[in-house]
Amino acid sequence: SCPVAPASRSSQEVWESFSQCFTPAVKEVVEFAKSIPGFQSLSQHDQVMLLKSGTFQVLMVRFCSLFDPKERTVTFLNGQTYSLASLRALGMGSLLDAMFEFSEKLGSLCLEPDEMALFMAVVLVSADRSGIVEVAAVEKLQENLIKALRSLITSRRPEDSTLFSKLLLRLPDLRTLNNHHSDKLLAFRID
């Protein structure tokens, strides 16, 4: 839920409340990662590195459901709906445009919740490897998760042979989103 403020508050205050939204969302990704079979058998160092490089991408997948590409609106969990134009004032215009485009593509695949969860697990373990020590262990985990995702998707929709590859094609999109936007600035007031 994100209490993006009514017009009465300054954009600085709006931005601070928006920034606060990320903290619980990041913590949920950490808990999600720990529930991925095999993730906690990686070294602690590698778990932290994967989370640092992959969490933004997992958040982008999670936030997709908030975006309505047809109406160009974002509805936060507290029910507040904002048009793209009103959110542009927060200075996240380019990220929002990219998010609408990404959520349209991912949304068109109509994934079930468990398929989406498995996809997010693949997203996390497919994150940048530059800081990883035991690369082979991460590669093995990624391979197992991709195999599980493929068998779940093909067993559910055997007639759609392109669905799985379309889904994997979202991974480079996410990496681009990450490279372009994870350096966006957040602001926190320190009282």
Binding site: F22, T23, Q47, K52, F56, L186, A187, F188, I190
Partner: peptide, 25 residues
């Protein structure tokens, strides 16, 4: 006067992850 701390999204994410793992050690 109010002071503000500005950090990138990536740094904010890293900070929370480091804190979480440090707490659970």
């Amino acid at each position: 006067t109010k002071t503000h701390r500005v950090m990138t999204l990536a740094d904010h994410i890293s900070h929370i992850i480091t804190q979480d793992f440090a707490r659970n050690q």
